[in-house]
Write a protein that binds this DNA or RNA. Structure first.
Lengths: 92, 92
DNA sequence: CCGCTGTCATGCCGAAACAGCATTGGACGC
DNA sequence: GCGTCCAATGCTGTTTCGGCATGACAGCGG
């Protein structure tokens, strides 16, 4: 599991569509599709239902989405916190 | 930035020693050293002071450590939540 | 019923990332 | 100054990864 996979998952969950999510992430559809498959494989459960017209979140996917968003914002907060500490320490 | 890098950072922060952290992660010293350097490069600030006898956390590193631990436990929680949802949905 | 379209999955290949080995460079204690 | 211990770096073989081309399948119109 990597942060890239989590970002991919969130994008697909929000778009319900691998192709659109791929464009949003400046990626192509195949690797993105593989990210989702890898995630499902690692978690041992499918996260999406493949509808033939896109992807729909399953309950397990909804549950994961909550945590996924929290992880990504925590990463963002970590980056900003470090920048803040460094910036303040050097200020007059 | 990847979850692997964050795990490496936490291990080094706790051991104050790249070699020991490497053993703990079943890894060797050079890649682990590079993980830390990559993290510092990405954050734009050093996280450790190199003491010639090991590594000591700088203030920026302490700040990052708090978030790093939270990220890792959130990932853990995400995995367990998905397993829980799947397990319960199939129970009688 | 049959092709047409739109979607995700897969086979394949070249490029990039990665881990480990060997070595260097530097700090500390004697 | 010398030996020891540490992190950093050069290098190489392997693995991972992204993109292209294609396959497999569902849904729709005729």
């Amino acid at each position: 599991m990597s942060l890239t996979h989590i970002q991919s998952f969130v994008a697909v969950a929000e778009e319900c569509h691998v192709g659109r999510a791929a464009r949003r992430l400046h990626l192509t559809q195949p690797p993105l599709s593989r990210h989702i498959l890898a995630l499902e494989d690692e978690l041992g459960a499918p996260l999406f239902e493949r509808t033939g017209r896109g992807m729909r979140l399953l309950p397990a996917g909804e549950a994961f989405l909550v945590h996924a968003r929290r992880i990504l914002s925590e990463v963002d907060a970590a980056v900003h916190t470090v920048r803040g500490v460094v910036g303040n320490s050097g200020e007059s």
